[in-house]
């Protein structure tokens, strides 16, 4: 989704502080969320290994709990869809979504019935992105036939283990490429001539605004709008991510919380000119409302999107995110001296 919100730099940007916005964003959001994601995905991989060694209800339950924790951390990290997470299709490998034509389901079902041990002995890294990440692992751990994992299903468990290890490996790579000392982090924290990819503070500011806008757009267009449908009769909760694990609302809450944390780390509520600071607090207000309302969702996603009052809760969250999105792309961008060119939306 790089460039979905391509911002053209209009003028010199107001520096968030003398040091720029990159360093506080790394310290306040990127490093802690990458660290949590690296840890929880490693725990998930270890937990699935235990499940394979000692199949049982308790080990399956532990793997599912580890999955939920790692997915929550993914929700936060997913907001950083640029640089290390965008390189090498890592976002798609971790989270192949939206999957309009159900490619992931077909592929994972095909793999589970193939018993192609050689095919996964070297890991998942060379396989289709749709097989490499959370949606494929969710089907393996929660989809039809997954209860066999408790009774002992070596092949299915090997697949789960290979995917979980792959997720952990990608998480570690992303964290490493963000580490202090990496060229990417150096240019993000201290943009300068000769550095890549950021040479000016305005470029870093633009990247952060794009990341906020892209994340909000993704939640609305890929996760909330398709299952909601235009009217209740067209609702289809199975178009929501993570409906099998009943983690749809928790995932979206984690993503919105990631947006909120990135916004806080950027420090706009302190650094914008005083007459523009309301923008940051207004965005936060919308995000808080969306999170609170999604927290009230009771039913599983298959029903919740088509049944009141849960449907109204998802719809309210979608609207709040729409408002937040407008505030980011119009008001926040303008307050930072960035503007979106009429011809700058790519894909045309």
């Amino acid at each position: 989704m790089r460039g979905l919100w391509a911002l053209v730099l209009l003028a010199a940007v107001l520096p968030a502080s003398a040091e720029g916005v990159g360093r506080p964003v790394i310290d306040g959001f990127v490093e802690p969320s990458n660290a949590a994601f690296t840890r929880s995905t490693a725990d998930l991989a270890a937990s699935v290994e235990v499940l394979c060694d000692k199949p049982g209800n308790d080990t399956l339950s532990a793997s599912r709990t580890a999955f939920a924790t790692a997915l929550d951390d993914w929700g936060h990290v997913s907001v950083l869809r640029f640089g290390p997470l965008a390189a090498d299709s890592r976002f798609e490998k971790l989270f192949f979504w939206p999957d309009a034509r159900g490619i992931g389901l077909k592929q994972v079902q095909g793999l589970l019935t193939s018993s192609d041990l050689d095919g996964i002995s070297s890991g998942m890294a060379g396989k289709s992105a749709a097989l490499q990440g959370f949606p494929a692992l969710e089907f393996t751990l929660y989809g039809a036939g997954s209860d066999s994992l408790a009774a002992g299903d070596p092949w299915r468990c090997s697949v789960a283990s290979a995917i979980a290890s792959n997720i952990a490996a990608i998480a570690a790579t992303v964290a490493q490429e963000w580490n202090a000392g990496s060229p990417f982090a150096a240019s993000f924290a201290a943009p300068a001539e000769g550095r890549e990819p950021y040479r000016t503070e305005a470029e870093v500011q633009g990247e952060i605004v794009k990341a906020l806008a892209t994340a909000l757009q993704f939640i609305r267009s890929a996760e909330l709008a398709p299952p909601l449908g235009e009217e209740p009769a067209k609702a289809n909760g199975k178009r929501a991510p993570m409906w099998r694990s009943r983690l749809t609302a928790p995932l979206i809450v984690a993503q919105i919380d990631g947006v909120r944390q990135l916004l806080a780390a950027a420090g706009y509520e302190r650094s914008l000119p005083e007459d523009s600071r309301y923008i940051a607090s207004s965005i936060r207000f919308e995000l808080d409302n969306a999170i609170r309302t999604l927290g009230q969702v009771e039913g599983p996603a298959e029903q919740a999107f088509g049944t009141e009052p849960d449907r109204g809760r998802f719809a309210f969250a979608e609207l709040a995110l729409h408002h937040a999105s407008e505030l980011v792309t119009r008001d926040l961008a303008a307050a930072l001296g960035l503007t979106m060119g009429f011809n700058a939306l790519d894909g045309d």
Binding site: F218, S221, A222, A225
Partner: peptide, 15 residues
């Protein structure tokens, strides 16, 4: 790859 149900999201960047 795009699909009108998903705005202008790009659905197949990996392939």
């Amino acid at each position: 790859l795009t699909h009108p149900d998903y705005d202008k999201l790009k659905l197949n960047l990996d392939t």
